[in-house]
Design a protein around this nucleic acid. Sequence first.
DNA 1: AAAGAAAAAAATGAATGCAAAATGAAACCC
DNA 2: GGGTTTCATTTTGCATTCATTTTTTTCTTT
Lengths: 250, 250
Amino acid sequence: MSMVLDARKGAAAEADPSGPATGEAPRAPVSLHGELLAALRDYLVEGNLADGARVPERLLCDRFGISRTPLREALKVLAAEGLIELLPNRGARVRALSADDLRELFDVMGGLESLAGRLACERVSDEEVAEIERVHHEMYRFYLRRDMHGYFQCNQEIHHMIVAAAGNATLAATYASFAGRIRRVRYSANLATDRDRWGEAMREHEAILDALRRRAGSELSDILFMHLRNKRKAAEQRSVSEAAEVESED
Amino acid sequence: MSMVLDARKGAAAEADPSGPATGEAPRAPVSLHGELLAALRDYLVEGNLADGARVPERLLCDRFGISRTPLREALKVLAAEGLIELLPNRGARVRALSADDLRELFDVMGGLESLAGRLACERVSDEEVAEIERVHHEMYRFYLRRDMHGYFQCNQEIHHMIVAAAGNATLAATYASFAGRIRRVRYSANLATDRDRWGEAMREHEAILDALRRRAGSELSDILFMHLRNKRKAAEQRSVSEAAEVESED
DNA sequence: AAAGAAAAAAATGAATGCAAAATGAAACCC
DNA sequence: GGGTTTCATTTTGCATTCATTTTTTTCTTT
C-alpha cells in the first residue's frame, strides 16, 4: 500500500504505515483522505504517544507530510471516536482511560459480543460453525501447549468470526471501533499470569461453541457476556497487582 | 433560534462543559466549537435536507455564519457518526438509510438496550425502580386513553431511564448516537396503525418491569432484545404498506 | 436538430495566513 | 529569596487563498 500522503510538495512519506490492518477502521471513511485517518488512528493505537500526552499538531504534520487542515479534521474524528479528547483552547490530548472507563468499555464490548452471538445463531451456516470449530480446536492445541501467543490469535479470530457471522455491518463497525479503543491498553496478557483463568476461559469457549452449534441465541448471549465480564475481572485483578506492564506481543 | 455561532470575535464563553450529565450528544467532544457540531447534527436529524441530497457547504456556511474550515471538520465527524457520507471528490450527501440499514440499526439498538437492562439489574436501586414504575403506570394510563403522544413520551423515557440505570456513560453515549441516527427516519408512529402491536408492546413493558423488579438480568436482557425486535418487525410491516409517511409528532 | 466536444463556472480538498489564547520566561515587587 | 506580574514565544482556531476536479453551459459537427 502506497500510503498516499504523497502530497504535492515535499511529502515526507516516511510514514511507515505498514500497519497490519487487523480490522480497525470503525467505518472505512469511503476514501476520504482516508489514509490519513487510518494512519493516525494506528499511530495512536500503537501507543506512539503516552497517555494524556499532548498531540503535537506540527510534529504530526511533518510526520505525515500534510498541512494542519486535514490533520485537524482527522483529530476531530478521532476525538468523536473517543481516542483523544479536545480541550477548549488547549489542543488534543491522548485520552487516558481510567479504571472506570476500562470497566465501561469491557461491558460494552461484552454487550456487543452478546448481541453478535444472538444474531449469529439466527443466521449462521453449518459451514461457518464448522470453520469456527476448526479455529476453536486449533486454539485448544495452543492451550495444551501453553502457547499464549497462538492462543491469543485464535481467540481474537473466533470472536471476530462470531461478530462476522452476525451479518450486521453496523454492529461489526461499532465492535471494531471499541476494540481499537481498548487495544490501546495492552492488558493483552490477561491470563498469562493466571493459569486458572486460562482454563476457565477455555471452558467458556467450549460452552460458546456448544451454544452456537445448537443455535441457542439467548444462551449464547449470556455466555458471551459473562465471558467478557470474567475477562474484565481478570484484567482488573491483574491491574492491581501490576501497576502497568507494557507488552509488545501481538 | 438564533443558532449561536456568533462567529469569530466575541464567541466563546458559551462553552458550558458543566453538564455532560443527561448524555445526549453521542460524544459531546468536550466543547469543540461544539455548538456547530450539535447544531449541524440537529439540522440533519430534523430532516432539513432530503435523503441523499448534497450537503451544500456554502449554504450552511452562510446559515451558521462560519467559514468552510470548521464546517468541514464537523462534516467529517458526522460522516464518522454515519449521518452523512463523504464521496471522494463529490462532497457530502445525506445518508439514506436502506431497509437493511434500518434492520441493522434496530438490532444494534436492541443489543444496547439488552445490555442496559442486564447492567441495570446489577446496580439499580429500589428508588430508581420505583421511579420507572411510576412512569410505567403513567404510560399505561395513556395507553388506556389511546393517547399515542403521551404513551410515546413515557415509552422513550422508560427506555432512557433503563439506559441511565445501567450506570455506564460509554453505553449511554453510544445509545444516544444510534438513537439520533434512527430518529432521522421518523417511523415513530410504529403502532398508531396497529392496535394489536400496541397491546403487545404494553404487555412486553409489563414483563420488562417485572424482570427489573426481580433483578433478573439475563431475562430482562432477552425481553428487551425481543421488544426491540418486535418493534422492528412492526416498523418493517408498516413500511411496506405505507411507502413513507412523515410525521411531525414527537 | 441532436449528440458530442470544448470551455466556463462552481465546488471540493488542502495550504497558508492571521488574530486570539495559552504557555513559558524574565523582570519586578515585597 | 519567594511570589507575582508582565512580556515574548508558541500554539490553537478560523478565514482566506489556491490548485484540481467536477459540473454545467455553450459551441461545433454530422
